[in-house]
């Protein structure tokens, strides 16, 4: 049995043993409670989508898991062990890799140098960079992910947004991530580029990685997600499996659901003709 198989069967046999588990986690900055009573489970080979509007607490949540901030209440366990991360390095060392919106790539450095940044391979008594091996591995890993970059010497800044996103994801996977946090990977991308990135997200999941996919686009989330968590004002507003929700419901929930409906009634009172029914609008959007 290969590692991947045992990974998969483990995940299948023990669906109740999540790799990262948050229980009632809260985070306050002084008198501001950015996150309150959030519970979340991330399992291997599953994509957990975290949705929410701006300011809903998505960033705070990933910063806690990525080790940039510590939480102030509740518990977070990684591999069944309770943890408080003091630095991003500790989070990385427990197999949690984060691909941030800004991607953590240096734009003027070449693709292969970026791929191995912080984890350079060296050889010989003078610890010289093993350029040949690094270029070969970077090329292999990127090809495995289905990305073709003909010239690994070109600066990362010359790649398209989707390609850069994929380089960052491929790097995280190569360096042994068991949990991959993707912070709005499709936010700045066009339709085709988003599709490319979503394909890699699915590939990462199929490789047995637990993916946390942060987004405010319910369409992207519903395409790939196994499990959805919607945050609102720092609380979990919805936590459901894919089987129990439709895209329409998810969209409504994301868009603000009942609040938005109330708003539409209010606006209708002011200008009856100008405001469409929210439900109609969403359904029309679905049909497109």
């Amino acid at each position: 049995m290969t590692t991947t198989e045992s990974f998969a069967s483990e995940a299948a046999n023990s669906p109740t043993a999540p790799i990262v588990h948050l229980e009632d986690v809260g985070k306050s900055y002084g008198n501001i409670q950015a996150l309150r009573g959030v519970s979340l489970s991330v399992r291997q080979g599953e994509i957990t989508c975290v949705l929410g509007d701006n300011g809903a607490g998505k960033s705070t949540l990933i910063k806690i898991i990525a080790g940039l901030h510590d939480y102030t209440s509740g518990t977070m366990s990684v591999n069944g062990e309770e943890r408080h991360f003091a630095s991003p390095r500790e989070s990385l060392d427990s197999g949690i890799a984060t691909v941030y919106q800004d991607l953590a790539l240096a734009p003027l450095m070449s693709v292969w140098r970026n791929f191995f940044l912080g984890n350079e391979l060296t050889r010989g008594p003078f610890r010289q960079l093993d350029e040949r091996a690094m270029k070969r591995i970077a090329n292999e890993e990127l090809t495995k992910m289905g990305i073709s970059i003909p010239d690994l010497e070109q600066p990362v800044g010359k790649l398209s947004g989707g390609q850069r996103q994929c380089v960052a994801i491929a790097r995280a996977i190569h360096f042994g991530a068991k949990v991959l946090i993707l912070d709005e990977p499709t936010a700045a991308l066009g339709v085709n580029q988003s599709g490319v990135v979503l394909k890699y997200v699915v590939k990462a999941r199929d490789a047995g990685i637990g993916v946390i996919f942060i987004t405010h686009n319910p369409h992207h989330a519903y395409l790939v997600g196994n499990h959805f968590v919607v945050l609102k004002l720092g609380r979990v507003a919805l936590d459901t499996q894919r089987a129990d929700i439709t895209l329409e419901q998810l969209t409504t929930e994301m868009a603000g659901g009942s609040e938005l409906e109330a708003l539409s009634h209010e606006l209708r009172d002011l200008a009856p003709d100008a405001v469409a029914d929210v439900q109609d609008a969403i359904q029309a959007q679905e049909k497109e």
């Binding site: 991003p88 390095r89 990385l92 984060t98 941030y100 800004d102 991607l103 953590a104 790539l105 240096a106 734009p107 003027l108 450095m109 140098r113 191995f116 940044l117 912080g118 984890n119 350079e120 060296t122 003078f126 610890r127 010289q128 960079l129 350029e131």
Partner: peptide
């Protein structure tokens, strides 16, 4: 050009936040 330190020098100048995020 040929050592890890050199790679890190390029990285801290190119994007210090990115370099920190990958452990430099």
């Amino acid at each position: 050009l040929k050592t890890q330190i050199g790679n890190w020098i390029f990285a801290v100048g190119g994007d210090a936040a990115a370099a920190r995020a990958v452990g430099v």
